[in-house]
Design a protein around this nucleic acid. Sequence first.
DNA 1: GCAAAAGTGTTAGAATTACACCCATGC
DNA 2: GCATGGGTGTAATTCTAACACTTTTGC
Lengths: 231, 231
Amino acid sequence: MPLDTATAAVAVDLVALTILDDELCVRVAKRQTPPFRDHWALPSRLISEEEDLFATAELELARATGLAELPVHHIEQLAAYGDPRRDPRGRVVSIAYLALVAGASTWTHTPSRRWAAVSDLLEQPAAASPLAFDHREILADGVARTRAKLEYTPLAGAFCPETFTVSELRHVYEVVWGVHLDPRNFHRKATSTPGFLAPTGSKTTRDGGRPAELYRTGDALTFHPPLTRHI
Amino acid sequence: MPLDTATAAVAVDLVALTILDDELCVRVAKRQTPPFRDHWALPSRLISEEEDLFATAELELARATGLAELPVHHIEQLAAYGDPRRDPRGRVVSIAYLALVAGASTWTHTPSRRWAAVSDLLEQPAAASPLAFDHREILADGVARTRAKLEYTPLAGAFCPETFTVSELRHVYEVVWGVHLDPRNFHRKATSTPGFLAPTGSKTTRDGGRPAELYRTGDALTFHPPLTRHI
DNA sequence: GCAAAAGTGTTAGAATTACACCCATGC
DNA sequence: GCATGGGTGTAATTCTAACACTTTTGC
C-alpha cells in the first residue's frame, strides 16, 4: 500500500460559538478570493506536518478570534466532511471542530471577521445560504451537537466567564435552546446534580437583586438524569 | 491557497460491531505486512477520487464482512484520527466509521479475518494491545458511542434480524452494556416508547415459551426519556 | 402437567413540574 | 419602603424499579 496515492488536502474547519446579546453567534470570515468570494465562511486552516488535528484547531481558534489571550473555552471534534465536490478546487477533506468560547465581544468585529447570529445564517434554505462551501451543514451539525450536549454535560459553563451564577448559566440554556426555563426549578436541578457546579464560596451582585453564589464548571463528564429541553 | 500543499493520505477505518455468542465482537483483519505485521487491525481503505466518505465506508463494510449480500446494518461516522505519528509510514488521516451489523456468523472466519470479542481486544493496556496503530483507541471510541446511543435511539435493532422479539432486543442491551435488565420492565419501556418498535403483527416461538410478538425497528431518531444503563 | 418464556398489575420511591413564598441586596 | 433577582418549600403528577402473577406455547 504505497502512501503517496490517494492523497487529499486536509483542513480543520472551526465552528466557534459564543453568546452575544442574547443570541447564539458563530465566528465567520469573509472570503476575499474565489470560489465563494464575498461569502462568509467558517475559519479554516490546512494541517501542517507536525500538528495533530486538535492542536490545529486550537491554533485556528486563536487566530480566528484575534484575541491575544484565549478566553475560557471548550474544543471537541465535530465531524469530517469529505464529499469529492465540496470544494471546486479539488479534493479537500475537512475535519470540523466545535469550540464554545466565553468573553467574545463585538469589538473584535472587522469588515472581514465577525460574530454572526446563527439564526440569520441558518434561516435561509441551503441553496441561498450566505455561507460558502458546505459550511451551512457544518454549522447546523455544530449547533445540533451543542444543543444536545447541554442536556447531559456541564458544557454550558464554557460559554460563561471563569466563575458564574446559576442565572447566567440558565441564560445560556435559554439562548441555545431557544426556550424559557423556570428559574427556581433550574436552580434546584443545577445545584443538586453532582459535578455540574463547583462552588467557589464567593458571591456577586452584578445581576442585581440578592447576591448570587458564584460557581465554576463542575468535573462531571456527563450526568443522569439529564436536563430536558423537551417542554 | 494552493491546494497541492499539505496533503495527506486519507483512509476510512471501520469499527464493524456485531453480536456473536453473547459477546460484542468487532471485525478485524490480520496484517500481512509491516508495520504491525501479524497484529490485528480494523478494516481500512484509502479514499478514491469519486467516492465520498460514507460510500467508502459502505464499500469497505461489504469487503470486510465478505458477505455477498450485506445484512441489516447501520453506519455512521465516528471520528477522525490524525496524529502525525499514528502511521510510521507517513501522514495518514483516518475517518473512522461505526457499523452495527446483524447476521454475522463464525463461518465468515478465515485465518486472516474474523469477528473478535471486543472485551479481549480492550482488556490489555494500550501498550500491549493486540491491535495495530491507534486502533485500540478507535475501537474504544466506537464501543463507547454504541453504548451511549442505545440509551436514546432505536439503534439496538441494527444488531437484530429484520424482525425480532422484545427479548432478542433486550439481549442486545444486556450484551452491549454488560448488565442484566429486568425483562418485564424492559418490555414495558420498549413497547411504550413511541417510535422504538414497529409492530409487524406476526409472532414467533423461536425463543421457546409463549409466542412473542415480532417487531421492526421504529422510526424514532431519538427518544426522551432515554433508557438507563445506570443501575 | 410442567417448564419456559411472554406479558400485565401493583406499589413504593424518585424525579419533574408548577407554583407560593421568603431572602438579601441596591436605590 | 420597594423593586429585583436569589433561593427554598411543597404538592400533583409522571417515571422508575422491584416483583407477584397470569398467559401461551412445547414437550
